[in-house]
Design a protein around this nucleic acid. Sequence first.
DNA 1: ATAATCCATGCATTGGACGCATGGAAAGCC
DNA 2: GGCTTTCCATGCGTCCAATGCATGGATTAT
Lengths: 316, 316
Amino acid sequence: MDYIVIMREVDLRRIDLNLLVALEALLDEKNVTRAAHRLGMSQPAASRALGRLRALFSDALLVDGPGGYVLSSRAEEVRPVLSWILAGVGEMLEANAFDPATATGRIRLLTPDLQAASLAPYLLARLAHEAPLLDLDIDAPGSHGLDLLERGDADAMVALIDEAPAGIRRRRLYDEELVTLMRADHPALAGEFTLERFLALEHIVVSVTGVGPAPVDEVLARMGRTRRVKLRVPNFFAAVEIAARSDLIMTLPSSLARAAANMRRLVSLPPPFDLKSFTMSLAWHARQQDAPRHIWLRRVIVAAAMDMSSVADVGS
Amino acid sequence: MDYIVIMREVDLRRIDLNLLVALEALLDEKNVTRAAHRLGMSQPAASRALGRLRALFSDALLVDGPGGYVLSSRAEEVRPVLSWILAGVGEMLEANAFDPATATGRIRLLTPDLQAASLAPYLLARLAHEAPLLDLDIDAPGSHGLDLLERGDADAMVALIDEAPAGIRRRRLYDEELVTLMRADHPALAGEFTLERFLALEHIVVSVTGVGPAPVDEVLARMGRTRRVKLRVPNFFAAVEIAARSDLIMTLPSSLARAAANMRRLVSLPPPFDLKSFTMSLAWHARQQDAPRHIWLRRVIVAAAMDMSSVADVGS
DNA sequence: ATAATCCATGCATTGGACGCATGGAAAGCC
DNA sequence: GGCTTTCCATGCGTCCAATGCATGGATTAT
């Protein structure tokens, strides 16, 4: 079989792919001068591009016919494929866009329970307004938050973040203050509220998921101290009722505590340890740094945090 | 809706498409040095290509992670599309191949009846041997052969072609000789066989399709003369029987006449006009000049014509 | 601490694409 | 036939963007 042509792989490194744009113009126009104009180059340059394309394809591509050039058989074959390839390139380069108004899917956010309770209403409000078709999934990070970001199992995390490992980006979000709440006629209000008195009392912890340490326990852990958690409840309002009718106390972010204090049955005090406030940060993986969807998400989270903070400022 | 990004058409004239090959290597390797090696360039050049790609995509594409670079979200999206595009380019550039052994389809050849009868057995033999799945369709060109080539309704034509118009390519194929056959005891054999005697006799024309002038009539037309066609039959052997039993004569290509002369009831003479032989040429449209399928077809036709001529040589 | 690896950038070089100019070929018009 | 117009291809000189060498900062491992 003398006529079997050995199939040879094309080495794209050696090929000037920019010629393909010129080819499309030449085949559309069937006229070197007009194609040159369309490409924004001179006629000689377009003629030379045609020469190089002829060499590349080992085919004349455009041949003399009545009234000027006509497409060769090879050019007729190639033309639809070429259009399809260049359209694909155009789409690939354009795909860097994100429209929240029409976007669908699920945003996965990691944040501790109580912070979620503070922030979520504002975040949900913004999402409902700007991206009505996006869903929000909030999970407690536990001790594995950074791993989850690393693995792509979460989009972002709002938490107390001391150190960001390689690949994790971070931005300060808001300062979180803690307050301790107890019933208005609690015996501990009769004297100085020391750390020892604080640790001697029994505590309520509000935890929706039951996962991970509360920020209070993280702070105490850094001091080598532990409190007595007498009760862990998933329901904030249940916690308030129990505190109002017992000697149990609870320590909360001030943003949450403010709502409870409005009930007028509880008193709020600064907790008796040095670290009364800490910075909540937004963390995400570098992989998503420039992704339009993620840029937008970070802006929404920051805005929601500012919404939350400005409501707090108005109240003080 | 502040966040709607205005969709902007990509101007491919301004984009260096050669960067896409580098991008594939960089995303595959996740390491600039190794990608450079694979691309056959230096590490700094590959690093700068990455820089340009980052600008083109407005995305980092490769970001620091544990153990080196990891793909950005955008890169993850782009990667399969990119592979698909580059594979498409490779296929497009490779498509210039033709394997007769596996090719299917129909070859449409134009050639006058008698020449077809001469050439077809040799052509069919070669096709059966080299391209068993290709079909052959032979039609008489009539007076519209060149139009049919122009319009792409035929692949090639074998005929007497004086002038090839713009866009039609031509190559000499073989010289065709004419002989006149008559029964062995025909009265015209008694004296000189002049043109006047030739024209005074009645003629048989063998025509399978009944379409178009025989080459004899074309030659006579150029002399301003006409012969009397008494009988037109589609069957060559019928023509032989009639000639053997009547005063009718017939004028044929020598390649065909040879088979009849072997029957020993007919005598062959050179026809009494100047143009006793003419060149049969192969014609095709320039559009198909470089197409592998057509290159191969032209070779096969030329070879078949040579097969036919060499058999004639052996007999003489 | 040192060594190895990787990536990014300054600097000098250069090859290839470019535009201007030109002329041949083809088609149309008188 | 000659003249004009249009189109395409090619010579020549220019220049610029991509390249490789050299270098140094950052990170990781020992």
